[in-house]
Structure formats: structure tokens, C-alpha cells
């Protein structure tokens, strides 16, 4: 698995880059426009110095997740059909995802700057420069925006390859298993009276660690799971 080989396979995944990389951005722009229109219409009188916050930024993260589900359900079988190995394909997908996360991180950072410069799009609207994501320097700010992209993109890859191998049933089983795990954890926390510690953890964890550190760690685990699941996958 040489880097040249990875770059070659990454180029196959991006042979229609306009769709793969452009679609999430297009959705983001449309969602921004929709929010501007909505906030113009309702004209909430927000108290001076406080912006109206919208959670619409999550749209680009969701669309990116969906495109990477398709990376495994559609691009993967095609690539294997033209003699690409599973290892090279998953490696190249990782390369694309890391690059994409960083580029999107920079774009969102630029949008946050624009938002500040235009007085919240002229409406005191906060879609990019969200208070709980603020960092003091450019590099950590971009990483905070990029971290969730890594997490969700690799989650998309894994869900995609699970669907490709075991169909809807596989995805249901996976989803229910994760749900059960979550419920189990919550029961454990409740029975041990740990809720206060959990709240403190979320309140006290630095933004960088919360939005870049931990997501990257989980993304790495998901990447390993994707690779393991792809080993016996048939195009």
C-alpha cells in the first residue's frame, strides 16, 4: 500500500469530485440562505449584543455522513470491480476524508469570519461562529470544526460497509446493539449516581479535546472497524 497507490485510488473516488465534495457545500449554502430568509421573516428582537443561534451547521455534517455511506455502498463495489484492493480502497477513503475534513474546517472558519464581518449576515444570526465552538487561534479553531467531520465520515463508511455486507438487517442489528450499549451505560451511570460527574465531564472538557481530540480517537476506531468489515466483503 504505497502512497502513490492510495492517491490513485483516492482520485477514483473523486472522479466526480463536484458531487462528492461539492454537494455538502451546496447544501450548506442553501441552508444558510434558508436561515437568512427565515430570520428575516420572523425578525426576532434579540437583546443587543446577543446573536440568535441556529443549529443549521449540522446539515453539512449530516450530508457528509450520507456521502460516505455511499462511498461504501456504491463506490466500493465499483472500485473492486476494476481490480482495486479493499485495503487500498479503505486507505484512500481515509485520505479523502481527512483532506475533506480539513478543507471543510477551513471553509467553515472563513464563513465564521464572514459572519462576524457582516454582523451575523446583517441579522445578528450565528450559524458558524457558535459560542461553544470558539477557539482562540486559527489552527485549533479549524481542528474543532474538522473533528466531527472525521467522526461522522468514518461512521458513514462503517455503516455503509455493514449495509453492503448484511443489508438492512445488519444496519438494524448494529444500530440496536449500539443503542443497547448506550442504554446500558446510562443505567450504569444512574445506578452508581455518576450523573454529576458526567455533566462535569461535558462542562469541563476543553473544546479542542471535546470536538477534535475525542472524535478523532473514535474515528480511528471506526476506520479500523471499516477495514476489518471490508476484508470479506464481496463487490
Amino acid at each position: 500500500m504505497t502512497l502513490t497507490q492510495l492517491v490513485k485510488v483516492a482520485r477514483i473516488q473523486l472522479v466526480n469530485a463536484r458531487m462528492v465534495l461539492g454537494m455538502p457545500l451546496l447544501v450548506l449554502v442553501c441552508v444558510l440562505a434558508a436561515n437568512i430568509v427565515i430570520f428575516m421573516a420572523i425578525q426576532t428582537p434579540s437583546p443587543p449584543g446577543e446573536s440568535a443561534i441556529t443549529g443549521a451547521l449540522i446539515s453539512i455534517y449530516i450530508v457528509t455522513l450520507v456521502t460516505h455511506v455511499q462511498t461504501m455502498t456504491q463506490m466500493f463495489p465499483f472500485a473492486l470491480g476494476i481490480s482495486v484492493t479493499r485495503r487500498d480502497f479503505v486507505g484512500a477513503a481515509g485520505l479523502v476524508i481527512v483532506g475533506q475534513a480539513l478543507v471543510y474546517g477551513v471553509i467553515i472558519w472563513v464563513m465564521a469570519l464572514l459572519e462576524g464581518a457582516t454582523g451575523g449576515w446583517g441579522l445578528d444570526l450565528a450559524m458558524f461562529d457558535l459560542p461553544f465552538l470558539q477557539e482562540s487561534n486559527v489552527v485549533t479553531q479549524v481542528l474543532v470544526y474538522a473533528g466531527p467531520f472525521l467522526l461522522l465520515s468514518f461512521a458513514g463508511l462503517w455503516a455503509g460497509i455493514v449495509f453492503h455486507r448484511w443489508g438492512q438487517l445488519g444496519v438494524w442489528v448494529l444500530g440496536l446493539a449500539l443503542g443497547a450499549l448506550l442504554v446500558g451505560l446510562m443505567a450504569l451511570v444512574g445506578s452508581q449516581g455518576w450523573w454529576q460527574q458526567v455533566f462535569d465531564f461535558f462542562a469541563e472538557t476543553p473544546t479542542l479535546l471535546m470536538f477534535a481530540g475525542y472524535p478523532t480517537l473514535i474515528a480511528a476506531i471506526l476506520a479500523a472497524a471499516t477495514y476489518a468489515t471490508s476484508r470479506r466483503a464481496v463487490p
Partner: peptide, 16 residues
């Protein structure tokens, strides 16, 4: 892949 036009399939094969 659904996002492909016919040309993309040939371009991908040309790379491989």
C-alpha cells in the same frame, strides 16, 4: 455509482 456519468467509469478504469 449513481453519481457517475458514463465518462467517469472510463476515467476511473484509465487510472487503474
Amino acid at each position: 455509482p449513481d453519481i457517475f456519468v458514463a465518462r467517469h467509469a472510463l476515467e476511473a478504469a484509465a487510472m487503474v
